[in-house]
Amino acid sequence: MMTDGVSSAMGRELPLRGAVNARDLGGLRTVDGRQVRRLRVFRSDLLTALDAGDVSFLLTDCGLRTIVDLRAPGEIVTDGTGAVVDAVAVYRNLHVYGADRVRLDLTEVSPDGSMFERYCEYLAHSSENIAAVLRLLAVEGQLPALIHCAAGKDRTGVVIALLLAVAGVRADDIIADYAATTPNIAALRARGGRPADAVDRLPAWVFAAEATTMRQFLTHLDVEHGGPAEWASRAGLDRATQRRLADNLLCD
Rank of each mutant, 00 (worst) to 15 (best):
T107R: 13
A52E: 14
L94F: 10
F207M: 05
R244M: 10
V6K: 05
Y119M: 06
A124Q: 14
A89Q: 13
I160K: 02
G157E: 03
A161Y: 02
L25C: 12
I76L: 13
V6F: 04
L250T: 07
L106Y: 06
P144Y: 01
D173V: 09
A124P: 02
Q142C: 13
G11N: 08
R12T: 12
V88Y: 12
F42G: 07
A204P: 01
L58S: 04
D222C: 03
R201K: 14
A9R: 11
P183N: 09
D79G: 06
L59W: 08
L39S: 14
A229I: 02
A52D: 15
A190R: 10
R234G: 00
T181E: 02
V139Y: 03
S127F: 01
A186Q: 07
S8Q: 11
L163M: 05
D177V: 00
A83G: 09
G227D: 04
G26T: 06
L47D: 06
G33S: 09
T213D: 14
G74D: 15
T181I: 04
T107N: 11
G5M: 06
L250C: 09
F42K: 08
Y178N: 00
R65G: 09
D79Y: 04
L245N: 02
D4W: 11
A89F: 04
M214H: 01
A235F: 00
G82H: 08
L58G: 03
R103G: 09
G26F: 05
C251V: 13
E210C: 03
L58K: 01
C120V: 10
D112S: 15
D252S: 12
T219D: 10
Y122K: 09
I147H: 03
R201H: 12
